[in-house]
Amino acid sequence: MTQSGIIFNTQRFSLHDGPGTRTVLFLKGCPLDCLWCSNPESKNPDMELMYYRSKCILCGQCVKSCEGLGISITEDGVLFDRNIVDIRKCAKACPTGALEIVGQKKSVDEIIPVLLRDVPYFRRSGGGVTLSGGEPTMQAAFCRELLLRLKALGIHSAVETCGHRTWEPFHRAVEAANLILFDLKHINPEKHSSAVGVDNEVIIYNFMKLVPEKKIIVRLPVIPGYNATDEHFRAAAALVLNSGFKGEVHLLPYHSYGSGKYKALQQVYQMEDTEPPTEKQLKAWAYLFESEGLVTKIH
């Protein structure tokens, strides 16, 4: 019996999540609640209904399928109460895909063949599979088995993690990966807690412990109003150097590409007015790491 996990997307031809051309498997569920998250559908570990008004033709099939329970059509499109409506029924009935379920339970056996589809592309590009999310280590057993299977098949694997999981399961989850893309959102514990809901103690502990053991790329989101300051990046550089880390550092500038998905989930996007950091700022912060001999990229 293989492990199963909840995934919300398999994205092929990904070029920015580890080396080469990669297939990224997005796992659903995250212990953090970042305001800027560009995959809001990844937070909740359960299946959810998303609704894209732009795809909807107001045909009413969804209402029919649920006999009107918790769902109706208005001038603004379909209105539904996600606690009442039968999300499977109405998504299945929707002919346009405007109503769509995110999150599918899949076993390792079911997923592996999908991940292997692009092996010819991995081979040419030095790519492979990246587990992302959400937070993959929330589904540690699934994550572990998947990575072990990939390893046995000789496929390069990477895990994108926020690092927030107690060491034991965290380590078990990522142990078989070739590369860890380790996010550090903020170095200051209170600041960390203020925007993502939890402090960074476990995260920093895991990071320090993982550095000697695994190939890591440090990924620093650059979020104006939260961590986009000289002070923060100086502290981040100090911490990274202090850990003995010798790998690459990637700066991930804030973007609002995910805002439409908040709407689709009937949630409010709270960073509407945030402007992305300027190139000049990014270069200056990148230099803090480069000057210490760390290869630094701006994505």
Partner: peptide, 26 residues
């Protein structure tokens, strides 16, 4: 006409979406 362009992909690190699903401002 989003229906005619469902295939336009957006590729950013750690992010998944199609152009037609982005918010209009984005």
């Amino acid at each position: 006409k989003p229906q005619d362009h469902k295939d336009l992909i957006i590729r950013v690190a750690g992010y998944s979406a199609f152009f037609v699903e982005l918010d209009s401002k984005v």
